[in-house]
Simulated assay, not measured.
Amino acid sequence: MSLKHPDYDQEIQRLKDTKEYIHKIVQLSEGKQESYKGNIKEAFVNLDHLDSSLSYINILVNAKFFDMTSSELEHLKRVEDKPYFARIDFQSQESNEPTSYYIGKVSLYKKDTQESIIVDWRSPVASLYYDGRLGEVEYKTEDRTYTGNLTLKRQLIVEDGELEEIRDIDITTRDELLQSSLSGSSDNRLTEIVSTIQAEQNEVIRSDLSKPVIVQGVAGSGKTTIALHRLSMFIYSYAGKVKPGEMMILAPNHLFIDYISEALPELGVEQIKQTTFIEYVQKCLGKKISIIHPDRKLISLLENEEDSMVKWASSFKGSLQFKHVINRYVTDLIRQFEVKESFKVEGFTLYKAKNINRLFFKEYNYLPINKRIKKIKGVLQTTFKKKRKR
Rank of each mutant, 00 (worst) to 15 (best):
S207M: 09
S195T: 10
L231F: 09
P212C: 04
N188G: 00
G268K: 00
E200T: 12
R154T: 10
T196A: 12
S232V: 04
I205W: 03
V269H: 06
Q271M: 09
Y238N: 12
D258Y: 08
I205T: 02
S183P: 00
L264G: 02
L250I: 12
V281K: 11
K211W: 01
S232K: 08
D258C: 01
L178Q: 13
E164N: 14
G217S: 05
I214N: 12
A263N: 04
Q274W: 01
S185N: 15
E164I: 08
R174P: 03
K243N: 10
K241C: 09
R154P: 03
L190S: 11
E279D: 14
Y236A: 03
K243D: 14
Q179F: 12
A251K: 07
I249V: 12
G161R: 07
E176Q: 12
A263H: 08
I249R: 03
H229P: 03
R206T: 15
A251L: 04
S210M: 07
G161T: 09
S186R: 14
I166N: 05
K211H: 03
T172V: 15
S180V: 07
R167W: 05
Y280C: 08
I235G: 01
D187M: 10
G245E: 15
E200H: 14
L228P: 09
V269Q: 00
N202W: 09
E165L: 07
R167I: 15
N202F: 08
M248S: 00
V194L: 10
V158H: 06
T275Y: 11
S221G: 08
A239L: 13
E262C: 05
I169P: 04
S180P: 01
I169H: 08
E159V: 13
D258N: 15
S221D: 06
D168C: 06
E200S: 14
V213K: 13
K223N: 01
E164P: 06
L182P: 09
V204F: 04
G240W: 04
T225I: 04
L267A: 03
T224D: 07
L255C: 04
Y238P: 00
H254M: 07
L178E: 14
I193N: 13
N202G: 11
D187I: 14
L190K: 10
I169W: 01
F234G: 01
I193L: 14
L156V: 03
G217K: 04
M247D: 03
E164S: 11
T191H: 05
P212F: 06
S261E: 13
M247P: 01
I157N: 10
T225H: 04
A227H: 07
P252Q: 02
V215R: 02
S210R: 12
T275M: 11
S210Y: 02
L190D: 09
T196V: 15
E279N: 15
R167S: 12
D175P: 00
L177N: 15
D258L: 10
R206V: 10
A239C: 06
Y238Q: 08
K211G: 02
D175I: 13
T225Q: 01
Q216A: 13
E164Q: 13
V242K: 05
G245M: 07
D168K: 11
P244L: 02
V281E: 02
F256E: 06
Q201L: 08
Q201R: 12
E279G: 05
